[in-house]
Nucleic acid binder design. Structure first.
Lengths: 210, 210
DNA sequence: TAAAACTAAACAAACGTTTAATTAGTTTAT
DNA sequence: ATAAACTAATTAAACGTTTGTTTAGTTTTA
């Protein structure tokens, strides 16, 4: 689907507002005004507010799979190196697309069988299967220990990354980092998350003791 | 504040519906109908929908502080044992009050300076200070290592517990646990979370290698 | 019998969506 | 080449619902 400049403006504005005020808390009038388009254009282009939300999701979700499945094919890296690359990929996405991830978190909380809920579930399942495969490979080579709960492992990755990125203000204040510029803090938190998660994953996955 | 039966019914219904459909996604008519009361009673008792939400929060938040500050006073336990008790306390609350926690997660995502947002922030700060104290005590006795990022540590606890409890369906399916009864699964996930978080915290806090 | 609890109805505002009309740009016909 | 026909983009206004809240009146309680 090719979008015009105006359509893209609507999608981006919708993403931002949905992330800040929630889907139900954002009116199509809000979106139209902030995107600088007439109210009716939203229905005209996307059909409905619901379908505009779907357009936001499609824009972001199309690029997700690639990385994990690329890594699985790779033969020059150890399994732990692959896991570490995966961690960085997740951290980057959470930080660079924090608005979209806020929307995702909220949507997952809602118990309805919407098209979007189905999309998210499908994506999560697919990713988990790929990562299970990666872990099994590591177990075969003896790199990883037995009895690893991969779902719990992913809950760790996603849970911590969500928690930190959605409460950046709080984290910043609690560590007296208010003096940092926004980009510097992003860099700082990215590195911090990356190092910490890799440490946790090494402790969980391998038999090494340091 | 003492509440009548009817008021409690309204608060409980509101909590359930807010958790499932979100604050903006829930109408006061929904709440009134499901609670079996007249629409006007909500305004009559609570003043507004917003204040009903605050009543939901006050009901849950009044009992939070106690545990952490109790632990700090205790002299018969090692610092690691205190941390472990804290973990179980958090896990229990996330599992037993998962509806309320869904609401909390959502409220924290919204960028507005509401009374509720202020309440949550205040609570988080207070808890973090207490736990920082606990960690410092452990560092003084040599039980814990230096350079511990307590905010990151709490993000781990809250992040993983949130992630697992809010995606119980997914976790259940991914581990082929559909056969379990709901209470059995609750028991299972509680134990799983407890053991796993204690492992992670030990690895993060202490210098021990197993 | 006075205060508290409760109700059905009404309120204005906000909501998502549709309409009918207009503009601008492109294609077709002569 | 120019007038006519057609298409897509855009607009302001209106549509019917639903929203949270209030009113004015009735019933219950103490």
């Amino acid at each position: 689907m090719e979008y015009s400049e105006k359509q893209i403006a609507i999608i981006n504005t919708a993403e931002r507002l949905f992330s800040v005020k929630g889907f139900d808390g954002t009116s199509v009038r809000d979106i139209a005004q902030e995107a600088g388009v007439n109210l009716a254009m939203i229905s005209y282009y996307f059909g409905s507010k619901e379908k505009l939300m779907e357009a936001v999701f499609e824009k972001r979700m199309n690029v997700v799979h690639l990385k994990v499945e690329d890594l699985l094919q790779n033969n020059t890296l150890t399994q732990l190196e692959k896991v570490n690359l995966l961690i960085d990929d997740y951290v980057d996405r959470f930080i660079d697309q924090s608005e979209f991830h806020k929307i995702m978190i909220r949507e997952q909380l809602i118990e309805k069988n919407s098209h979007i809920a189905a999309l998210i579930l499908q994506l999560k399942k697919r990713n988990l299967q790929s990562i299970k495969k990666l872990v099994m490979d590591g177990q075969k080579t003896g790199e990883f220990r037995k009895n690893i709960d991969v779902a719990m492992m992913m809950a760790t990755l996603v849970g911590i990354a969500s928690q930190v990125t959605t409460s950046q203000h709080f984290y910043r204040e609690m560590n007296n980092l208010e003096h940092m510029s926004e980009p510097d803090f992003k860099k700082y938190i990215r590195k911090k998350l990356s190092v910490y998660l890799k440490f946790l994953f090494k402790a969980t996955l391998t038999n090494e003791t340091k």
